[in-house]
Design a protein around this nucleic acid. Sequence first.
RNA 1: GCGCCCGUAGCUUAGUUGGUAGAGCAGGGGACUCUUAAUCCCAAGGUCGAAGGUUCGAAUCCUUCCGGGCGCACCA
Length: 582
Amino acid sequence: MSGEDDLSELERERRAKAARLAEEGLELFARRYEPRTRAREVLTRYAGLAVGEADEAATLRVAGRLVARREHGKAAFFTLRDGWDDIQLYANVDTLGRPSFDQLTSLDLGDIVGVQGHPFRTRRGELSVFVECWTLLSKSYRPLPEKWHGLQDRETRYRQRYADLISNPEVARQLAIRSRLISAMRSYLEERGFMEVETPILQPLPGGALARPFVTHHHALDVDLYLRIAPELYLKRLLVGGFDRIFEIGRNFRNEGISVVHNPEFTMMELYWAYVDYREIMELLENMLPSLARIVLGTTTLAVGPHQIELTPPWPRRTIDSLMRQYLGLSLDQMRADPGRARAELRGRSVEVEGRDTFAQLVDKALKHLVWPNVIQPTFAIDYPIELSPLAKSHPEDPLLVERFQATIAGREVANAFSELNDPLDQRRRFEEQARNKAAGDEEAMALDEDFLRALEYGMPPPAALGSGSTGWSCSSWESTPSGTSSFSPSCVPRSSESPCWAVPTEASSRSRQPRQPPKAARAFPDPSRRGWRCAHRPLGWCATIVAAKQGAIPLRAGIFLDHRARGQRRPAPAGLVIERR
RNA sequence: GCGCCCGUAGCUUAGUUGGUAGAGCAGGGGACUCUUAAUCCCAAGGUCGAAGGUUCGAAUCCUUCCGGGCGCACCA
């Protein structure tokens, strides 16, 4: 809790008002409000009430946050927000009595209240709850963002997702859709004989995808572990063990750039199906998505931007070769044989390419810049060149192709699948290829996983697999409103004030007094020689930078943690050392 | 990493060729018993991200720093 000095005028005003209400005998933070009816249910149950009509026999109890107030002397209207549904309240002096009415109208926007009353429809036609009595459930000490424009600032919206959700209920609705989608997907797969499994997130070797991993450390074992970049290799081990239809929905972690569609931690569904190839996976997907859409949205037609997307199967299958011919004017063979010409054709279509781009990268860029933007309706792009897909099984008719598809909807890659390699010797060769790339400086190259190869050597039934990231099947492609991100809590660059902060008392402070507000968990002082730590160096405030050292290639700085009462003094008493994560 | 842009009251913002800030919402006081971005009246709220510099004078121009956003690249 900040000291009074740090509060804005508005916050002081709210605290004073809260104290006043408490004096009048109001409990500021109640325990429960039960039974209660959700706003959504009230709105549907009484949708049939005619204008001006009231159902005085009914008693409703609704609860939520006051987000707007319209006073009319001896009457008042409120907007109560319950989740992402708003319902109007009407109160007047005649029903509540003067003291209760005055208290109600003096509440702050943002306060959470419970209200008992009956439903009626106003003369202007809005279904409302006529307040007969009310209870304060939680006092809000912070003013809400602007009621009409909502919270706009992107940074604040991501960092303070709670404020965003209060202020922009559309975001809450999108997240609820996403949640229902995942739930429906689970049921759909289970009904078709797939078993949900959980595989390690902490892995001794990161594998199954080409990406930079996050590293962490197991202290008891004194070994580095990696947060998984994909569950793939562990799911395949389960296939070896005999499970023939499995899937996992969970987080993957990739140490890459952060953007609206790329969170370093993201949810992904991976599915493995033994004894089939990518054709069955295509059928599964083109049947599953419309089915989920019907459950979650009640329709198989989606509005995405200006486009109407129809999910009904079958979706067209287009080979990469035919897509290249159509959009680039070159076949795959031509591109492979003459990358220079492919580069020229791409440049001619104003796609930026670099001289060192390989055949695989050129195909990738052509897909991304020329093909996907033009493929609006659900489509399977199939039969990728082998250079793009080191883990896929080769095509029976063309050794330079693999059995792989990507499903795209409205130009977005929704899923990626292939018939999986199950020859351990072949797999070993491809790992070794990756090892050479690693040696050549490719940070994303896959590590050779001996245990995984051993599993394959026992024999894995031929499987096909599907991977689908949540950005593909969440709001942006399922709903027309772009809400920024599909994540409940988007990752942000940590702020110095939000970074994990540890402090240990120094001699000086243990002799004097502890700072009034030491950072929480001020217990351990992590070894500063470990990567990724740096000093907090806020210029004047809680700490001051005292040294800048260099440890290996990592610049390190440690700081003195000051008792904040000592601010402004010439020689403040150091209360501890502070370091902060980069 | 590279490029472009931004930072003004709790929120949403205006600010002209440089003359030390003007609104709306929210908050305070008052009026109003069916409003819905309610309305009307009154008053209050700002070291214009920070520090330097140029200038008689800086929110505005310059430099540095801090915080952030958006493209591109990598990728889901």
